[in-house]
């Protein structure tokens, strides 16, 4: 009985926690961008502008949720929910600390990869349903980008899997007690990081929406809370990818015992979230062909090489 309550508590906690973090990122991102650009950022609503989140949320909830007459209405409504669903589902396999995990699946990593692939649909469907040429272009770019980077996203993790010999997330964390995988799997870390940015289509890989040429691309036609779902989906994506990096390469909750494991986990996770924001603050968006070329011609061979070497080392050790 207690276990079930515990389970429910974890589920509710993870759900609330992640969504809260995602919402809080609205503020964090704006503030950090400002810091790195020598500006003030939100500083009017509450102390240090901390209630800007609330103001933004109130605003977005009360905005007119306009569905243009020319769109494919059903798909138009479904599209933004996909990203929220698929990412929230992914959080089910994330072990935040020993015992704090919703489903400690054997194939946890595969589940994460499967769920993140679903994210492509949200962009394609939103772009298509909008019935607008810019949105469609954004959707097409998104589809190509997500599929391309997914290929070596999976492959970049294979080094870790080979070393651990398991897809289970808890096993992967525990396998890093001696040394974080970032050291032996440095190439895998770098490629996963890049693929992660591309998968969440964050800057500098935000080609599906690229303000300057596609005027927000796949979500041009979205407003109100539907737009809000894309928005929150993106922050959830950042959080998820940061969690995954923490778990796969930086030892998850592991750390000196003067702090509880969950705190260690959160510290590492936020460090990567901040890194994502720093990327946005500093790098320019590549051209579309540069993005594709970078993925297929550089990163894919690199990950293949990584898998090959890791395999060879593991085999020779065996």
């Amino acid at each position: 009985m207690n276990e079930i309550w515990m389970q429910i508590l974890v589920i509710v906690g993870v759900l609330l926690g992640t969504v809260t973090i995602a919402a809080g990122l609205i503020y964090v991102e704006r503030k950090m961008l400002a810091v790195w650009q020598q500006r003030s950022g939100p500083n009017r609503v509450g102390p240090f502008g901390i209630f800007q989140v609330l103001a933004d949320m109130v605003k977005i909830f009360f905005k007119e949720d306009w569905i243009p007459p020319f769109v494919d209405k059903k798909i138009f409504i479904i599209a933004p929910t996909i990203i929220m669903l698929s990412i929230l589902m992914s959080f089910a396999i994330v072990p935040f600390a020993p015992g704090i995990v919703i489903a400690d699946l054997n194939i946890g990593l595969l589940f994460f990869l499967a769920m993140s692939s679903l994210g492509a649909y949200t962009i394609v469907l939103a772009g298509w349903a909008s019935n607008n040429k810019y949105s469609l272009l954004g959707g097409m770019r998104g589809a190509a980008q997500l599929i391309s980077y997914e290929v070596f996203m999976g492959l970049s993790l294979m080094g870790v899997v080979i070393q651990v010999g398991s897809f289970n997330m808890t096993d992967i964390v525990n396998a890093q007690k001696g040394m974080w995988f970032v050291v032996p799997q440095f190439v895998g870390f770098v490629t996963f990081l890049i693929a992660g940015i591309a998968e969440t289509h964050r800057l500098p890989f935000d080609l599906p929406e690229s303000e300057s040429e596609l005027i927000a691309g796949f979500h041009s036609e979205y407003s109100g809370m539907k737009f809000g779902m894309f928005f929150v989906g993106e922050y959830l994506g950042i959080t998820l990818v940061s969690c995954m990096i923490t778990i796969l390469f930086f030892g998850g909750w592991l750390g000196p015992s003067f702090l509880p494991p969950i705190v260690w986990f959160l510290i590492k996770m936020f460090a990567f979230i901040l890194f994502f924001i720093l990327l946005r603050a500093s790098l320019a968006r590549p051209r579309y062909d540069q993005l594709m070329g970078f993925g297929w011609k550089l990163l894919l061979p690199l990950t293949l090489l990584n898998v090959l070497i890791t395999g060879a080392v593991v085999l020779s050790n065996a």
């Binding site: 400002a34 810091v35 790195w36 020598q38 500006r39 003030s40 720093l278 500093s282 790098l283």
Partner: peptide
């Protein structure tokens, strides 16, 4: 670039209130 932007964190703000 990332490093240089990161260092901006420690510079004075230019915003006028």
């Amino acid at each position: 670039t990332l490093w240089m932007v990161f260092l901006k964190m420690f510079k004075k703000k230019v915003t006028i209130q």
